[in-house]
């Protein structure tokens, strides 16, 4: 399997706090790589460096063989690095379908077109409808994103992330705040996406992690203490103590 994303010895300090301590991590094609760790372990900080909203103090990030360490957020997104946010981040003023349409628009060249009417662009609407259907939201197309339920907004986020046919998805707690039923649906959705793109999954829901992940990396106090298959993680004593301990006990 080929590596999509390779982060090499990333370091990020916030004042005296070492939020990312020499972390190396990679995601391969067709793989779900889960990132777990207690609150404050630096998971979101790490993802922010991968997407470009935070710059690492040192270390390099390569995506599809290209050094992207200094690329801004939008340029990385255009290369095929999509993300969903820990706190739901949709365009609340826009309808569900328009959220997806904009996500797709981002990957169709530039948008410096001032007079064309998007409502009359049927190809655009159709593509967006297919994008919504892929996450099971087609019935909610015209509903403003702000009026969708929490679970639906999380689904919409996935549809937006998929808008540009990404090579890699960075999912920051996609199951956060979901009920068991919604979580199950999300697990099914993510499982079905494995053929399309690699994923780096941050998730607290251990059931989801063990159901989905091919590999798991455990982050504690900014350090990646172990990377392995779900079985290896279950057996690893240090991991059990540091993280799973509280649940295994």
């Amino acid at each position: 399997m080929t590596e999509l994303l390779v982060a090499d010895r990333l370091i990020k300090r916030f004042g005296g706090l070492l939020a990312t301590d020499n972390v190396s991590i990679d995601v391969r094609h067709g793989e779900i790589h889960a990132l777990i760790g207690p609150n404050g372990a630096g998971k979101t900080t790490l993802v922010s460096q991968l997407t470009g909203s935070l710059a690492p103090d040192s270390g390099t990030i390569r995506f599809l063989g290209r050094d992207i360490t200094r690329l801004p957020v939008h340029a990385r997104a255009r290369l095929g690095l999509a993300r969903s946010f820990q706190i739901t981040s949709v365009l609340r003023d826009f309808s569900a379908i328009e959220n997806v349409a904009l996500a797709q628009q981002a990957h169709h060249g530039h948008s410096f077109r001032f007079l064309a009417d998007v409502r009359k662009d049927t190809a655009r609407t159709e593509a967006a409808r297919r994008g919504l259907a892929a996450v099971g939201l087609e019935a909610r197309a015209t509903v403003p994103a702000s009026a969708l339920s929490h679970g639906e907004q999380r689904q919409l986020e996935i549809a937006m992330a998929l808008g540009g046919a990404p090579k890699l998805l960075l999912l920051d707690e996609p199951m956060a705040g979901m009920g068991p039923e919604e979580s199950q649906r999300m697990i099914g959705l993510l499982h079905g996406l494995k053929q399309r793109c690699g994923m780096l999954l941050i998730e607290h829901d251990m059931e989801a992690v063990f159901a989905l992940a091919d590999r798991i990396t455990v982050l504690v106090y900014g350090r990646a203490i172990f990377t392995g298959t779900p079985d290896e993680i279950r057996r690893h004593p240090e991991v059990r103590q540091a993280y799973l301990g509280e649940e295994a006990a």
Partner: peptide, 23 residues
């Protein structure tokens, strides 16, 4: 109502999201 206008309005609504989408 143009693609440009939608990007502008999208950025008004949620700038970080628009950047993460690739704009």
């Amino acid at each position: 109502r143009s693609p440009f206008g939608h990007v502008l309005r999208g950025a008004r609504s949620n700038e970080g999201r628009m950047a993460a989408l690739g704009f």
